[in-house]
Simulated scan of single mutants.
Amino acid sequence: MWMPIFDAVGRRRRSALRQLAGFVGACMLALWACGGALASSQASTAQERVPDARVLRAWIGGTNLGAIAPDAENADVAIADRVLDGFEAGTSGLATHDGRFVTWGFKFGEGNQQSVAVYDSDGRMMLAVIVSNVVRLDDGVTPAIRSMKVYRERIRRAGARPHVLVFAPNRAKLEAAFPLFARWLQADLLGFNADCTRTREVCALAARVRIPVRAFIAWGGDALPRRTTVPSIPAAPIPLADFVQ
């Protein structure tokens, strides 16, 4: 006599559980789809901001790196080609609250050969940057570096020569965009995805590291980019955690 009642109660419970499971599953699927769409959107946006080869060559010209920096790696490679090489893989990007955008990547198979581009709110390129041989404070493999002395020793042991070449169409754009690039460089030293609440010392050290930078004004056409002084401007106050790769 009691069995049918118990069976009915059990059926109702099982039905409710199935409905709950279906609801949770639908929510999870929606979240997954939205997350995937967001990630895809961010990736495609960064990819769309990779410098256009024709625009870049028209702006910087066909000058080889060796003509302006004889000691640079790949001295026999055209400046524009080296910039484009640095976007072959790992393309990522960040939009700022004022509409500017920084995108970066690295050469396929050579993560120490990077490139960066900074755009204004109208999508016009303000900076094209060649970044070579940066030794990171936190590479995700060895213990993070917390002192300048240890960092210099790491560079010496690696036999690396970190250096940066920055190109801008004029002085005004160089000064306007350089703080954003400077902040990117700090994030690069931290290996991106930084959590400065856990690694305060390392993040503080990143702000003190000075990687050799040379800046140039690129006139376009066949004109040789002219060297200029590197802006002495603080890095943009963007949270380092915002630079994600």
Rank of each mutant, 00 (worst) to 15 (best):
M1V: 11
M1K: 12
M3A: 11
R14V: 03
S15E: 13
L17P: 03
Q19V: 07
A26V: 08
C27E: 07
L29S: 11
A30L: 15
W32E: 05
W32M: 13
A33I: 09
C34W: 14
G35V: 03
L38A: 12
S40Y: 12
S41D: 08
S44H: 11
A46E: 04
E48P: 00
V55K: 10
A69I: 04
A69W: 05
A78D: 02
I79H: 00
A80M: 03
A80L: 04
E88K: 14
T91M: 03
H97T: 12
R100H: 14
R100V: 03
G105H: 00
F106H: 15
K107I: 00
K107E: 15
N112D: 13
Q114A: 02
V116M: 08
A117D: 01
M126Y: 02
V134G: 02
V135F: 07
L137Y: 06
T142N: 14
T142C: 03
I145A: 05
R146E: 12
R154Q: 13
I155S: 08
I155H: 09
G159P: 12
G159S: 12
A160N: 11
A160V: 09
H163D: 10
V164S: 06
L174E: 06
A176Y: 06
P179A: 09
D188G: 02
L189E: 08
L190Q: 09
F192P: 06
V202D: 05
V202M: 09
I211T: 12
R214A: 11
T228A: 05
P231R: 01
I233H: 00
A235V: 01
A236W: 02
A241R: 11
